[in-house]
C-alpha cells in the first residue's frame, strides 16, 4: 500500500482492559481507501475488542484514532454511525420481536412529511418498508415473503442477511463486518462475499473479520493478523499462503520483518 495515501481509518496504541484481562495491548490499525482489509486472529486475540473500539461500542483506555486524518473519539455506536461507520456485529444487534423493516431503520426512522410527521412524529411505515424491500432485493439474499415478519421468525442466515443489508444500505465511509459468513450456508456465503465486493466497487472500504481462510484470501486486499491483543503484521494474500497466515496468527512462525513494519 502506498504510504503517501492517508488511511481512512487509523488507530495507534489502543489499550483496552476488562478488569485483569487485557483485550487490546497497544494495537495499531490502518484501513486504506477502497480496500477490503481482513482481520484474522485466534479466539481471544482481541479482534472483537478492536472492532468495538473503532465502532464506538466500547471506550478504549488509551490510544488515538483518526478518521480521514481527523482525530475522533466515539462515545457510542450512534456517533460512529453518524460519522458513516456501519458495523455488523457478531450478535447482529437485531431486535427479534420487531419486523425486518423496523430493524433496518432502527435509530434512523423516517417520519411522515407534513404536520403528522413534524407535530405528531408519525412514522412513514410505507416508505421504510419500500426501501427495506429494495435493499434486500439488491442483496438478493432474501427469500422473504413479508417485510413485516418479525426477525425471530427468520432463519439464522436470513437474519445475517438483514444485518448485512442494513450496514450496506446506510454505511457511507466504512463498513465493518464481524464474522458475516459464520452462520451462512455455501450459497448464502457466496452472496455475502459478492455483496462485499459490490460494496467495495462503490469505493467504500470494508473491514472483514473472519475465521474462514478461503473467504479471507479470496476477497481481501490486505490481511491484518491480530495476536495477543495487538497487530502482529499485515500481509498481502498474494504473497503468502493460508498456512503461512495460520502460522503467524497462532505463533507457530515469526512473521517477516517487512510485514511487521507495514
Amino acid at each position: 500500500m502506498n504510504p503517501a495515501v492517508e488511511p481512512v481509518l487509523k488507530a495507534r496504541g489502543l489499550v483496552k482492559r476488562y478488569g485483569r484481562v487485557t483485550a487490546l495491548n497497544n494495537a495499531d490499525f490502518d484501513l486504506y481507501p477502497g480496500e477490503i482489509l481482513a482481520v484474522i486472529g485466534d479466539n481471544g486475540a482481541g479482534k472483537s475488542s478492536l472492532i468495538k473500539a473503532i465502532s464506538g461500542a466500547t471506550n478504549v483506555d488509551e490510544g488515538k484514532m483518526w478518521l480521514d486524518g481527523k482525530p475522533f473519539h466515539f462515545n457510542s455506536p450512534l456517533e460512529a454511525r453518524e460519522a458513516g461507520i456501519e458495523t455488523v456485529y457478531q450478535n447482529l444487534a437485531l431486535s427479534p420481536a420487531l419486523s425486518i423493516a423496523d430493524n433496518m431503520f432502527m435509530g434512523r426512522e423516517i417520519r411522515r412529511s407534513g404536520v403528522m410527521g413534524s407535530m405528531f412524529k408519525m412514522l412513514d411505515n410505507k416508505e421504510m418498508q419500500r426501501i427495506a424491500r429494495e435493499k434486500l432485493n439488491e442483496l438478493g439474499l432474501m427469500t422473504i415473503q413479508n417485510i413485516n415478519q418479525a426477525v425471530e421468525t427468520l432463519s439464522g442466515g436470513q437474519r445475517q442477511g438483514v444485518a448485512v443489508a442494513r450496514a450496506a444500505a446506510f454505511g457511507s465511509r466504512v463498513v465493518i463486518l464481524d464474522e458475516p459468513t459464520a452462520a451462512l450456508g455455501v450459497k448464502e456465503s457466496r452472496k455475502v462475499l459478492e455483496l462485499i465486493q459490490d460494496v467495495r466497487s462503490r469505493g467504500m472500504p470494508i473491514v472483514l473479520i473472519s475465521h474462514n481462510m478461503p473467504h479471507v484470501f479470496e476477497v481481501a486486499d490486505r490481511i491484518h493478523v491480530h495476536r495477543l491483543g495487538r497487530r502482529l503484521c499485515t500481509i498481502n494474500p498474494k504473497d503468502y499462503t493460508m498456512s503461512d497466515a495460520v502460522a503467524f496468527m497462532t505463533g507457530a512462525q515469526e512473521p517477516p520483518a517487512e510485514a511487521v513494519a507495514a
Binding site: 455506536p77 444487534a93 420487531l98 423496523d102 432502527m106 435509530g107
Partner: peptide, 19 residues
C-alpha cells in the same frame, strides 16, 4: 419502536444506535 427494542434486547438496541 425504541421502547420495544430496548425491552426485547437492550444490548442489541444499543449497538443498533439507540440511546
Amino acid at each position: 419502536r425504541h421502547v420495544y427494542a430496548i425491552g426485547d434486547d437492550k444490548e442489541a438496541a444499543e449497538l443498533a444506535g439507540i440511546r
